[in-house]
Design a protein around this nucleic acid. Structure first.
Lengths: 362, 362
DNA sequence: CGGTGTCATGTCACCGATGACATAGGTGGG
DNA sequence: CCCACCTATGTCATCGGTGACATGACACCG
């Protein structure tokens, strides 16, 4: 690859003059500039960032560490790739700032993180972002040096700047909206209990009930986590059957995520329960391919991954420029409720108790 | 950040000796090595890749350009993010080779590509990969210099090395398997006709019919592309209704992708047609969150994105090392048929003609 | 006991760009 | 008319590593 000296020789000027043309530094005569630009074009010269960096000490690089890319293939996370939307949001902000994003993937193995961090430090990344695939607590090895770190979709105990989804508020907004639509018996099928999102959303659910003046009925809350295996839908089936058999059954099922809602559609149909005529269903995540393609389209809450990425990027840039005071408060990001046809606006006051028998259709 | 000279001073040796310890170059005395390592640890020293690169001329970087990350948000591509799996496959191979992947996103605007390429060249990336979000023909600006380029999920007219899904074979394998299961009337609901995948898969469909000794009936092939808008499901509904009204209706519907299959489930159910008892359904892509979560689970063809990424990465590495002769032949990658419960293994020989009336359930 | 390796380490130049400073004309004010 | 000043350009050192080569201290061999 051609160097600045090759250009200088071809244009019959000094390397410094070429540098001036490139960076619009000091004054350059019009015909000299012309000659230099022609030489650059002719040689296909592209300046070397490495050499530049040695003097300026600015790499223009930001490192991103995620388990997202690889984790998506693991059956552990059936939800798939939504966390990559975070990467998207980050990428966009960085591109606007002329920063280049370097992406590394843990391959699902946390023990690789130190090596990745080291690689980024070798490239003198100006900051690092760690993106988790779902809202969780993490414990990362300390980053050597003064390179700032921001956590996205996760947090730690060390007060590292973090950007998190506002699960409590999201579930609250959804349930509040559902209550406003006239529903009084609102069931909640939760994800695994040990997930951060589950406990936060449960709080949001109760917040909204209280605000709406509705009583909290523990029988309406069921843990119905589905991992990948098919047999696990048994848990979900049983949970739904229990709800349907209640003397005063719910008129709407809020699901832990959209994938669960999709299964719920199938299960309800196999019971002869129509969605939304007999039973409304709501999800969480706004996993669009599901929510928009299902029939009827699914009412859900946007999990604002892209916004979170954007906020994380902005927070990191603030840290890099040194302006951002290192407030340990996590940034909470909330998304809107997306009201679609899967939840009726005026539920029947007292829906008839629906009988069913096994999996056969009515 | 500490330099090699800081380490040298602290360890009372020359910088070169530190370099030797780091790279296990020439011989170093045991106590000297010890002292150097302690100094490195104490200072948290990390060597600068930029400085290293200036001499060795090896950056260890590979540039990846994609519209994937941003395009996923656009409503144009309801399929979402599967192409990111390609990135995943690439990432894995590169990590194994101690290469760092730099990812840039076009934000859906092709006019940004030259700038991104330039950035990568400034960083002296040793090779570039362009990843498209669906199988298509592209036209990229030429990459200045001798930096090799590989196309993934797309191809051009210039003979640039490319890695592509074997759509023809995939559809063939699926239809062949379905025919082997005893189906004789196999319908095909295609994606948009102008897509590369559509024409290739149509060929595969006909290949398989011919092999199985089944006649080709043009009435069984319907263009049923669904873009994002809801009203477009009308096209799909009409296509299905036409098929159901045939005097000799199909026993199985092959869909252009899994998302379409998901809609087909809903439409069939609204017609009182049971899946798979009355009608089998197959998809394409193995979009796992759909295929595995639907009830019944969806028979589909794996679109081997991850493999494609891997192959693209390997091909690029071959180009970089100069071994790989620049064969302009595209690499075709095929994925397996995933046989699940949505297609019956022994269809009724002559399924009764199913009557329906509008959207009401039976 | 001198020559010849080998080991352990140091010296120096160089990779490609740029900052600090120098220099050579031309221009205008006092 | 001379000097201060601006414009256009060049010179040189430097950033942080590493390759090429040098050096000093032993050890081994004939």
């Amino acid at each position: 690859m051609a160097t600045i000296y090759d250009v200088a020789r071809l244009a019959n000027v000094s390397a410094k003059t070429v540098s001036r043309v490139l960076n619009e530094d000091g004054p350059v005569g019009p015909r000299t500039r012309q000659a230099v630009q022609e030489a650059i074009a002719q040689l296909g010269y592209v300046p070397s960032n490495a050499a530049r960096m040695m003097r300026s000490n600015r790499s223009g690089l930001v490192g991103l560490i995620t388990g997202a890319i690889t984790a998506a293939q693991e059956p552990t996370h059936p939800a798939g790739l939504p966390d990559l939307l975070i990467v998207q949001g980050i990428q966009r902000v960085m591109a606007d700032q002329d920063m280049t994003l370097m992406v590394a993937d843990t391959g699902g193995r946390a023990d690789r993180i130190p090596r990745l961090v080291r690689t980024f430090l070798e490239h003198r990344a100006e900051g690092l972002i760690y993106v988790a695939d779902y809202h969780q607590r993490v414990r990362l090895p300390p980053v050597a040096g003064s390179t700032p770190l921001v956590l996205a979709n996760c947090f730690d105990d060390a007060g590292t700047p973090a950007v998190l989804p506002d699960d409590r508020r999201g579930q609250h907004d959804l349930v509040a909206r559902i209550a406003a639509a006239g529903h009084r018996r609102i069931a909640y099928l939760t994800l695994r209990e040990d997930m951060v999102a589950t406990s936060l959303r449960s709080l949001g659910y109760r917040d909204a009930l209280a605000e709406a003046g509705l009583p909290f009925d523990p029988r309406l809350v069921q843990v119905a986590y589905l991992s990948d295996g098919e047999e696990d839908s048994r848990i979900l089936v049983e949970a739904i059957d229990r709800l349907l058999e209640l003397p005063d059954p719910p008129t709407v099922l809020c699901c832990g995520n959209d994938a669960m809602a999709m299964r719920v559609y199938g299960i309800l149909r196999s019971r002869g329960v129509r969605v939304p005529e007999d039973m409304s269903v709501a999800g969480y995540d706004n996993h669009r391919i599901i929510a928009e393609t299902l029939y009827p389209p699914l009412t859900t809450v946007e999990l604002p991954y892209r916004d979170m990425g954007q906020r994380a990027a902005e927070r990191l840039l603030a840290c890099i420029s040194g302006q951002g005071r290192d407030e340990p408060t996590p940034t909470l990001v909330s998304g809107p409720v997306l009201w679609r046809a899967s939840v009726t606006d005026r539920p029947a006051a007292n829906p008839r108790h629906i009988s069913f028998n096994g999996r056969s259709e009515p």
